[in-house]
Design a protein around this nucleic acid. Structure first.
Lengths: 148, 148
DNA sequence: GTAATAGTTCAAGTTATGTTGAAGTCAAGT
DNA sequence: ACTTGACTTCAACATAACTTGAACTATTAC
């Protein structure tokens, strides 16, 4: 039956190891049905879900968070356009934020090169503590504050 | 003597734990001098280096690579403008690439919402394997190929 | 000079994300 | 029916990046 993939087929299509699929399933990020003999069979939908998992990892999210994000989608069935839309929308802020962070990094790097600082030691932009100490311990310029 | 920081002072300014600084030093990413009693004293320069370490981690680089990147800078002395310039320049491709990746992700997410796919199952953009299977196992759309 | 605070090393523990290996079972082709 | 390759579980290992704890020492404030 086309429509169900073995773990090997799914892994090959995704370019990842079968062990990773079992791991994701174990962690509840994907689901499978089983043959009478106990082997996994994945709906095609799993390909998209796993693609998202890998994409989300690039953004720096841990599987725990990816899982809760994926919880918006129906576990088995392919998502409707509305479900998909809502899912995608929920991702935009994350992506935009990360892009903003990287652009800031790139731009400050560039600015610092050209900003005419006489001494890099006293450059406001790249010396996190020296001037930022006013903001109290933990003030940083280049490093985003992440939840502890 | 102003100019040398205790590990606690440096950690407070950077907003990280002292154990992290010892860890970075152990790994050779930063250096310190020692007091007669054996306590670490950090030159102010360490603040910038550690800021970079944290920034680079946001980009997704492992410490091993960050270390080799930092090797371009003088270990103790503050870098000259030229040294800094070269260092910063070496970072741009990394940053640009990561930004490009995230933008692609964001845009494809958007495209898929509006692309009029009748069925998400057959959407070229988000179904990595279905059409991309022509490219052989491992072809993916959303996931960047990273060095194994 | 002494107490409190902050520092030292070293080993072991933690979380995240998987991979690897052993021992055995299923599915498919001939 | 039998062989082969793909699958199963479960436990252990791997690596990164730190943190924690124990036992001890330095520095600083009074």
């Amino acid at each position: 039956m086309r429509g169900l993939l073995t773990i090997g087929e799914a892994a090959a299509r995704l370019g990842i190891a079968t062990s990773a699929l079992r791991f994701y399933e174990d962690r509840g990020l994907i689901v499978s049905t089983r043959t009478s003999g106990g082997q996994r069979r994945y709906a095609r939908d799993v390909l998209r879900r796993v693609s998202f998992i890998r994409a989300a990892q690039q953004v720096g999210l841990p599987l725990r968070e990816i899982k809760s994000s994926l919880a918006q989608l129906p576990p088995e069935r392919a998502p409707s356009k509305e479900e998909w839309e809502q899912f995608a929308e929920s991702w935009r802020p994350r992506l935009s934020e990360q892009i903003r962070l990287l652009e800031a990094m790139r731009d400050r790097l560039g600015n610092c090169i050209g900003c005419g600082c006489q001494s890099l030691d006293s450059c406001d932009i790249f010396n996190p503590g020296d001037k930022a100490a006013d903001d109290g311990p933990g003030a940083r310029y280049l490093v985003a504050d992440v939840a502890s």
